[in-house]
Simulated scan of single mutants.
Amino acid sequence: MNLFEQTNWPEAFKPLVEKYKGKQHPLHYGNIYQLLVMVVLSAQDNDAHINKIAPDFFKKYPDMKALAKANTAELTEALSSVRFHTNKIAWLQDIASEIKEDKNIPTTLKELTALKGVGRKSANVIMREAGVQAEGIVVDLHVVRVAPRLGITKGKNADKIEKDLMAALPQSMWADAGMAISFLGREICRPTNPKHSECVMNTVCEYCQAHKS
C-alpha cells in the first residue's frame, strides 16, 4: 500500500497532535519579544545554548526599545558565544530599529518574513506561540527528517515538505502539526534506533512498517 497516497492523514495525525498539544516550546521565552530574538539567535546554533545565554541578555535588553539603543560593541560582548553572531547582531539591530517597541511586533507571515533573519520556519513558530491563525507549518531539522519517514511527504527540503504537509492536513492542524512532528523527532523518532514501540504514529508510518523486526 502507498501510505503517502492512501492514508487519511488528518485522522492519523490526531493522536500525535494531541500528545504534544500545549507542550512548552524548546526555547524558554517569556514573551513574543524574547521569542523573536531567540529564534533569530538559534538559527544554526542550538536551543539549549540560546536558553542558557538568554536570561542575562534579557536583563540587559528587556524589550525592543532597549535593544534598539544597544550598540554593536555591547551586543557583541553579550552574544559572542552565538554562532554567526556578527550577522545576527546586524539583523537584530535592523529589526529593533524598524519595530521600535514590543507592541509593534507583527504576527503575520508576510510581515514576519520581511524582517531580517526571520524565515518561514521562525515566522511559523512565532505565530504559533502568539496564538494567531497559522498560515504555514513549522518545518525545522527534525521535521525535515521525520516527515518523509512517516510517508506524508517525499520532499527533501523544507519548502517542499511544508507544502506537502499543508496539502495533507487541514489548516486547523497547521499550528500544532509541525511542532508535534519536531517533538516526535526529538524524543522518539531519533536518527538512529527510533523507538517504534513508543510511537503513536507506528501504524501509519512507512519507515516503521519497513523496519519491523
Rank of each mutant, 00 (worst) to 15 (best):
N2V: 15
E5L: 09
F13W: 06
L16V: 10
K19Y: 05
Y20K: 11
G22F: 15
G22T: 15
K23C: 13
Y29L: 04
N31R: 07
I32L: 15
Q34G: 15
L36F: 05
V37K: 12
V37R: 12
V39F: 06
A43V: 11
Q44G: 06
D45W: 03
D47R: 02
H49Y: 12
N51P: 15
A54L: 02
P55V: 14
D56P: 04
F57I: 06
K59H: 07
Y61N: 00
P62V: 02
M64I: 04
K65Q: 13
A66N: 04
A68D: 03
N71I: 04
N71S: 12
T72R: 13
T72W: 11
A73V: 09
E74P: 14
L75Q: 04
L79W: 04
S80H: 06
S80P: 01
R83L: 13
N87C: 03
K88N: 08
D94R: 03
A96L: 03
S97Y: 08
I99V: 12
E101Y: 15
K110G: 03
E111F: 08
E111L: 10
T113R: 14
T113S: 08
A114K: 13
A114P: 12
L115K: 06
L115M: 07
G117C: 12
V118Y: 03
R120E: 07
M127Y: 14
E129G: 07
G131P: 09
G131C: 08
V132L: 09
V132Y: 13
E135G: 14
V139R: 02
V139P: 01
V139I: 06
L141G: 13
L141K: 14
H142Y: 07
R149F: 05
L150K: 04
N157K: 15
A158E: 10
K160G: 10
E162I: 06
K163T: 11
D164M: 05
L169N: 04
Q171D: 04
S172Y: 00
S172N: 02
M173S: 07
D176R: 06
A177N: 12
A177D: 02
G178T: 01
M179V: 07
S182P: 00
F183H: 05
F183V: 08
R186L: 01
I188L: 05
N193V: 00
N193K: 08
T203I: 08
V204Y: 01
E206R: 07
Q209M: 14
A210D: 14
